[in-house]
Nucleic acid binder design. Structure first.
Lengths: 335, 335
DNA sequence: GAAGCATGGTATAACGTTATACCATCCGTC
DNA sequence: GACGGATGGTATAACGTTATACCATGCTTC
């Protein structure tokens, strides 16, 4: 295996200086067609690839964007990543993903890695319970950072998120209009962040429609947890006829539980999910849910970070995207 | 916002040379406790983080490993990533993921990015139809590269994969022993790679058990495609009583289709999936499938790349992991 | 043919680390 | 008190690029 080729190798092979070779590789347009061809041919032949570390150190530019995410194994997030990369790729950037799995230590190591390598920009879904010191660390190194979904950091970063409270209020209102009076908030465990915003919207709607006191039922946001938690909830509160859920996975789990109890989702108990993941439409029965387009959110996120890179001085922005009620078959009039 | 701190800043603040500061940060153990404390304090105060580009360029080491994957939005792959990172993190490495979505152009850009940044190691699930030139490119830059799942590159890389042929042979054998004679291979579209290995195992078993001629039914590997493809298959070949599937998603889709046709998976038509994703166990009915532990495969993958980094001269290795038949409720005697 | 200018090439000093080699002290020993 | 060996600190040359400034050449133009 030959030595890794560097610019010097290419330049020598083409019979020019490294300065010239560099200009050809960057396409400054100052080099004559003849020498350009020679250099390009040599580069191709030697499989030359610029050393991005040296280039980025010298030029201060880095076209690799980091995405620090809380959970890669999540179809919603996967779609977001697609949206982000599609847009950034058209601008010549590229997105590398680090998964913290909602572990704050791992998250810190991941973010430090992004700082170490001086990524050109940083997209970040902060883990639940992220320490203030982590926000401080990031603020101290001005990478162009955008927080996503979970807003924190005291306005020191751009943010893209969902109108959570408005969404759950809308869901609750819809159920109220169908005649439901005993509506629970179902799923999730966090006390702060996104979930607390959603619970706030739900509680506000209960007040507005003069409904029963809120019941918030904790459980992890996956199908299996949702299934067993639904049974517990039904045992403890048989009066409940409708659920506003923290996510589609847990909502589908709840529907499974309802079926296993010999009832039917949308008849005895209505269920509204959140996210509109792919499975929601093909679940049995198809799930009523609050839809936000993760792909579109990803594109928005990309646009925000590009703006920040272009103009680091611009005041921080906040973009909140509304969720839309998609009625399928897990909701119906109280009966 | 203050300037980004560099080693010089820290050294000055602590009243020592950059050489000393560097030694403290790296923990060479040659520096006295007193100065060590001073430097560490200054570093902390200034939120100093080593510039990995400079460090890696000078030292030739890079503790960031790249994972070029064909599809991030895939629960199997997500588990693999967890396994890889867990093991690598204990060794002080860190895994960043690039998703090519089975697009060979995007894949090439991604791999070039890894080469540009001289990642310490490279894990790679080659996209279907990867060009030879891409393998050449990688071979020319000896990053420690390990291919995963899809074997190619003419033995120039280490490889970790699944015993595909043996697995589908085992699945087919099990169905044959239940009395099935008309067994189809269901799902997938690729003509080469993993799927062709699996089809080979299936066909071999048909021969061994003197069964009907093979029927291979193409369709994309997701639930919805599986659902409609099953109906087409049943219309075209009503004699078929069992399916060996290319993946769990498509198998679950097939089960949905069977139900919609008024039959019951495991009764009129038996179905065996592949992968044993989380949903397989909670599907209705629970899916019989060929299980491989993605998490364990991830750990294996990590071990292989670590060995390669430690000893670049060692001959290339191939590790094939067997799949195990997990019997649930979608298979039963022919009847 | 001298002045002015565009064109195309190059020498060189950064960028922020780390590895090497070197130097100053101090301590103990005979 | 001269010598040998730790111990702990530092000056300096890389690593592979790119930006800047500079230089040589040839072409206009009057």
């Amino acid at each position: 295996m030959p030595e890794k080729p560097k610019l010097e190798t290419v330049a020598k092979a083409a019979g020019v200086s490294t300065a010239t070779a560099s200009q050809v590789m960057r396409g400054t347009g100052r080099i004559s067609e003849g020498t350009r061809k020679k250099v390009l041919a040599a580069a191709q032949r030697l499989h030359y690839v610029t050393d991005g570390r040296a280039a980025s150190m010298r030029s201060g530019e880095n076209r690799e964007i980091g995405f620090a995410i809380h959970q890669i194994a999540n179809p919603f997030n996967a779609e977001v990543i697609s949206g982000v990369s599609d847009l950034l790729e058209t601008e010549g950037y590229l997105v590398s993903v680090l998964d913290s799995r909602d572990d704050t230590d791992r998250q810190r190591r991941n973010l430090e890695a992004f700082i170490r390598s001086s990524r050109g920009g940083l997209l970040w879904v902060p883990a639940e319970d992220t320490e203030d010191s982590t926000f401080d660390l990031l603020a101290a190194h001005d990478l162009s950072t955008v927080t996503f979904l979970r807003r924190s950091g005291a306005g020191r970063f751009d943010h893209v998120g969902i109108e959570n409270a408005a969404a759950t209020a809308k869901a609750t209102q819809y159920l109220a209009e169908l005649g439901h009076r005993h509506i629970a908030y179902f799923g999730g465990v966090a006390k702060a962040g996104v979930r607390s915003e959603r619970i706030a919207g739900y509680e506000q709607a209960l007040v507005d429609f003069k409904l029963d006191l809120p019941i918030v039922w904790d459980c992890f946001d996956d199908k299996i947890s949702g299934l067993s938690a639904l049974k517990e909830l039904h045992a403890a509160h048989p009066e409940i006829t409708a659920l506003v859920c923290n996510g589609d996975m847990v909502a589908i789990g709840a529907c499974l539980g309802i079926s296993q109890l010999g009832m039917q989702p949308g008849r005895e108990i209505s269920v509204i999910g959140f996210d509109d993941i792919q499975d929601a439409a093909v679940a049995t029965p198809p799930l009523t849910t609050m839809a936000v387009s993760p792909y579109q959110m990803g594109r928005k996120l990309a646009r925000v970070v590009l703006n920040r890179i272009k103009d680091p001085e611009m005041p921080k922005s906040i973009s909140l995207i509304p969720a839309e009620l998609v009625v399928r078959e897990t909701t119906g009039p109280v009966g």
